[in-house]
Design a protein around this nucleic acid. Structure first.
Length: 558
RNA sequence: GCGCUUGUAGCUCAGCGGAUAGAGCGCAGCCCUGCGGAGGCUGAGGCCGUGGGUUCAAAUCCCGCCAAGCGCGCCA
């Protein structure tokens, strides 16, 4: 089992490594010039399944032209059951093709592994925290937040598949000035609902959702809060309002298939004294300076372009200071060896100073990965829809999800790489929703299930098929695609870019549709039927896994 | 002004050092007396923003320029 879980890619590069070592022993290559042996996937089928350009890189140092060098190395490659043939190709590539017998055997291996297929062990069971969304609970989520949410939840699933113990977390900013602004705005709306003249503050939140929330609270609690002193009433009402905002955020996210292992409250940083400990740590390192009545993080000394305020002259800590405390909590208190944050594009300037702060606390900044999820501009055809929380005309994430559905929404976000800005055209999303690639992929899955159902009706079972009968070109091409899932999991883990997953799913679906049109599964040939049913089953396992990793449903019927 | 990100087919986007640059949509055709046609096949369509450089090899790396987005608060 362990052997089949190892990617062929590494098996082949191992074989090549052995050949290179032999070449060195025979004096064909200098031992000093041993490079890393990377395998590539050639674009053209005639170049095999895997290829290496090693001879091209070694030629100069070896004093031999690349092609003869490639030929010499090929001659030293030990035979292996996985490899059908290894050959040199101009200008100096070494190509490998997989053995059909071995390939076909993988169908049984996949069925044996079931939904464990695709799992790899890059993480070695190490703990990893991934924090995302973390929107202030002062308003509903919009489309841009949805992108971060989908990105984070998919990454969490993939990192879990690659052998990490992943903890997903939402950081709740429930202290600070924006929260006060929220309190004041809500209190005004509450008063208005009770017929009082009370304008929303200049810098307040004017969205309709607060109007509704104010009305809701007024209905439930009457004028109770008007009878209290305002400095008592406002925070209490505010707290209730915020709880409702959070509940709403939570349910919006659930609608998109996004859940969190932990909701971490900013307030806990103060209650547990972690804020103080973090600041103490910075002070000990000599990174804190008092100037103009405020406390500054002296980051210029650490290569930053400017210093940043930690504690205002009013005595109130800045967002930056609490974020430092939060990261102190992640790295020092909870001891996560690695932390991933997904931030919106507007936080991009915050990355380098946060990393600097981590180093100042003695945490290797390489342990902190920050992914920026770029802007999403929402539009209806030509019209650009503003998504500012303060202006009234927000289209919420929930509205978008209701309109296009969670699967389309997730897939749409996942197809783009995180650092590319994107347009979300509602009109287009709706218009093309039934020609959407998601449906193409899901349809492939229902086809697989349909065939298995059909076979069952005819009394055929999945037992006992002989995979050696799978000799058709389309069958082997499909198996090749199936075997790529672990490589994709690896790629997403290394790059932290989930967009390779939808690409792969699309290719897999295409390979299956092609197989379907060219190879009749359920036929009078019972032996072939059984063998092909196995391939269908293996395909279904792999495609379902790919869809699950993306958080997209794998329907049996559509 | 400085920093980060982006510029690839009509549109939305992959590819980010390797052998003839890809997909979906759109467009022009073709394919069912069998497992769901939400499918398959064929075709048209690209000086990979631009000018230099590095390399055996550049859409991919480096530098300049042009264009777009986002940052550069004792906001978060």
């Amino acid at each position: 089992m362990e052997l089949t879980r190892r990617m062929v890619k590494y098996r082949i590069s191992e074989l090549l490594g052995e050949a290179v070592q032999q070449a060195q022993e025979k004096g064909l290559l200098h031992s000093a010039t041993t490079p890393e042996i990377a395998m590539e996937r050639p674009q053209l089928a005639e170049h095999g399944d895997y290829a290496s350009s090693l001879p091209l890189k070694l030629a100069r140092g070896a004093g031999t032209p690349p092609l003869p060098l490639a030929e010499a190395i090929v001659a030293l490659i030990p035979p292996a059951p996985e490899v059908e043939r290894a050959w040199a190709a101009p200008p100096g590539f070494i190509n490998f093709s997989l053995s059909p017998a071995w390939l076909v055997g993988q169908v049984d291996a996949i069925i044996g592994q079931e939904e464990d297929f695709g799992n790899i062990d890059l993480g070695g069971g190490s703990r990893l925290q991934i924090e995302f969304v973390s929107v202030n609970p002062t308003g509903p989520l919009h489309i841009g937040h949805g992108r971060g949410a989908v990105l984070g939840s998919t990454l969490a699933r993939v990192l879990g598949a690659s052998g990490h113990r992943v903890v997903t977390e939402y950081y709740i900013n429930d202290a600070g000035t924006q929260i006060e602004t929220f309190h004041r705005s809500l209190f005004a709306r509450y008063q208005q609902a009770l017929g009082r003249e009370s304008p929303v503050p200049e810098d307040g939140y004017v969205g309709d959702y607060l109007l509704d929330l104010g009305r809701e609270l007024a209905q439930e609690h009457g004028d109770r809060f008007l009878l209290l002193p305002q400095e008592e009433a406002m925070p209490e009402l505010g707290r209730m309002g915020m709880e409702r905002m959070l509940a709403r955020i939570r349910s919006d996210l659930e609608l998109l298939g996004v859940t969190f292992a932990r909701w971490f409250s900013e307030g806990d940083l103060y209650r547990d004294g972690q804020y103080q400990k973090a600041m103490q740590l910075l002070r000990q390192g000599g990174f804190v300076e008092e100037r103009e009545g405020a406390l500054w993080f002296a980051s210029t000394a650490l290569g930053e372009s400017k210093d940043n305020v930690l504690v205002r002259s009013t005595g109130a800590p800045t967002y930056f200071a609490t974020d430092i405390a939060y990261h102190y909590n992640k790295f020092v208190e909870r001891g996560f060896p690695r932390v991933i944050n997904i931030w919106g594009a507007d936080h991009q300037g915050h990355i380098s100073r946060m990393k600097t702060a981590a180093s100042a606390m003695g945490v290797d900044s390489a342990r902190l990965n920050v992914i920026i999820s770029q802007m999403v501009t929402l539009r209806r055809g030509e019209e650009i829809v503003k998504i500012s929380k303060r202006s009234g005309d927000i289209i919420t994430l929930r509205e978008v999800v209701d309109e296009v559905g969670p699967d389309v929404c997730r897939f749409f976000f996942l197809t783009r790489s995180p650092d590319a800005q994107m347009d979300f055209d509602l009109e287009l999303a709706k218009k093309h929703s039934d020609e959407n690639p998601v449906y193409y992929i899901q349809y492939a899955h229902t086809r697989m299930c349909g065939i298995v159902r059909h076979a069952a009706e005819k009394g055929r079972e999945l037992e006992g098929g002989d995979v050696r009968l799978l000799s058709h070109e389309a069958e082997q091409a499909l198996i090749r695609k199936l075997l790529l899932l672990p490589e994709v999991v690896e790629l997403v883990t290394v790059t932290l870019e989930p967009h390779h997953l939808p690409r792969y799913s699309l290719e897999l679906a295409a390979a299956f549709h092609d197989f379907y049109t060219r190879c009749r599964v359920v036929s009078r040939d019972k032996a072939l039927t059984d063998a092909r049913l196995k391939l269908v089953k293996a395909s279904q396992i792999v495609l379902a896994r790919a869809l699950t990793l993306m958080g997209v449903t794998a329907p049996e019927r559509m």
